[in-house]
């Protein structure tokens, strides 16, 4: 029998899968036993969406090594396209889970296309300039969806920008209403769907990272010139990571939107992009399990701080600064390391 090679990465990846499954099972059991508060129950789907967002952004920031400040733009594309698909298919596909699946796929597809189009100019730039252009694209996407009108009637789809000129025939309905966004969404997103989305995201990202392409992407991150000199096609591999990241964010956006009855473009602004970036940096760049934990913890944290009412966001900000200082300050870090090694020595002595 061939022995399966059990490398360090495989072990770590299996642990990540295992922990996600464990968390799902435990939460389901808690829910069934009625131990979960209603506020936590309502947050399960947003947490799933943010976890998927964090994993997908980690692909761009951690694995590809480029700072993106406009990840919420892809989430927005996914949310609007996915939700529109769900509304259009309301009668054609009666099964809710199937409709949800199709919508997520459509959200991912559209986000991938937008990601590709944005990637062409963005990936030519470097460092802070790349970051500012992703920010700019995020704002542009927000502005466009804020002014987009999409209606459907017996003649098909009607699209107009800036003002409602869809001129729908009788019996038609407006799906996207400019700054009003999409209203009357059927909340078909479920926690199980969120769990499946996280698993799919993990499978896609882990398989990409552990493939030939993934190693090429990391080589580009570590030293672009060296990677270029051994004949790697920089644009191709950068684009691969960027588009995958966009597509996964699109699916997450679609899931997120279908948990609410209305969705507006302003929900996916610069602050949302930053929020997801905070998850990635706190969890550790390139560390998917870290992203998952950070996303879940930081989504729950403001709720958990509810008893401090007005002070909760202030406390959140202070915690954020303190965590960054604690994990990145050389003096504090060496002090923590010494503490750790001291404890280990103490154990050995016993």
């Amino acid at each position: 029998m061939k022995k399966i090679k059990w490398s360090k990465t495989t072990g770590k990846n299996t642990m990540t899968y295992g922990l996600v499954i464990l968390a799902y099972v435990v939460l389901q059991l808690f829910g069934a036993a009625g131990l979960m508060s209603s506020s936590l129950k309502g947050m399960l789907i947003p947490i799933c969406a943010y976890v998927a967002m964090a994993i997908s952004l980690n692909l761009t920031v951690g694995v590809l090594g480029e700072l993106s400040l406009g990840h919420a733009g892809f989430m927005s594309v996914g949310a609007f396209c996915g939700t529109s698909t769900a509304i259009l298919l309301q009668n054609a596909v009666p099964s809710a889970p199937l409709r949800l699946a199709i919508s997520l796929v459509m959200g991912a597809l559209f986000a991938a296309v937008v990601g590709f189009l944005i990637g062409i100019p963005v990936l030519r730039l470097r460092g802070d300039y790349l970051a500012i252009v992703t920010l700019a694209f995020g704002e542009i996407i927000k502005s466009i969806f804020n002014n987009l009108y999409l209606g459907v009637d017996s003649h098909g789809l009607h699209v107009s920008l800036l003002s409602d000129r869809t001129n729908l025939a009788e019996g038609g309905s407006l799906i996207i209403g400019g700054p009003m966004g999409i209203g009357g969404i059927q909340k078909i997103a479920t926690f199980t769907a969120g769990f499946v989305l996280i698993m799919v995201t993990l499978v896609v990202v882990f398989n990409l990272v552990n493939s030939r392409a993934g190693r090429a992407i990391m080589a580009i991150r570590d030293n672009r010139i060296a990677a270029e000199s051994i004949g790697l096609n920089i644009t191709k591999y950068k684009m691969m990571a960027f588009v995958t990241s966009a597509a996964l964010a699109g699916a997450a956006g679609a899931l997120f939107a279908m948990n609410y009855s209305t969705v507006v473009a302003n929900k996916f602004d610069f602050n949302t992009s930053i929020l997801v970036l905070v998850f990635v940096v706190l969890g550790g760049q390139g560390n998917m399990l870290g992203s998952i934990i950070a996303a879940a913890a930081l989504t729950i944290l403001p709720e958990a701080l509810r008893e401090y009412a007005d002070y909760r966001m202030l406390v959140y900000a202070i915690i954020l600064i303190l965590v960054m200082l604690a994990t990145n300050n050389p003096t504090l870090k060496s002090w923590l390391d010494r503490l750790k090694s001291g404890r280990r020595k103490a154990k050995e002595a016993i």
Binding site: L67, V278, L314
Partner: peptide
């Protein structure tokens, strides 16, 4: 304290300071 830290860490700290100022003002 973060002068020698990676630039992303400083960026997130700056965002933390931004949240702090906004909420303190609130």
């Amino acid at each position: 304290p973060l002068r020698s830290a990676p630039s992303l860490a400083v960026l997130i700290t700056a965002i933390g300071v931004s949240y702090f100022l906004q909420n303190a003002a609130l």
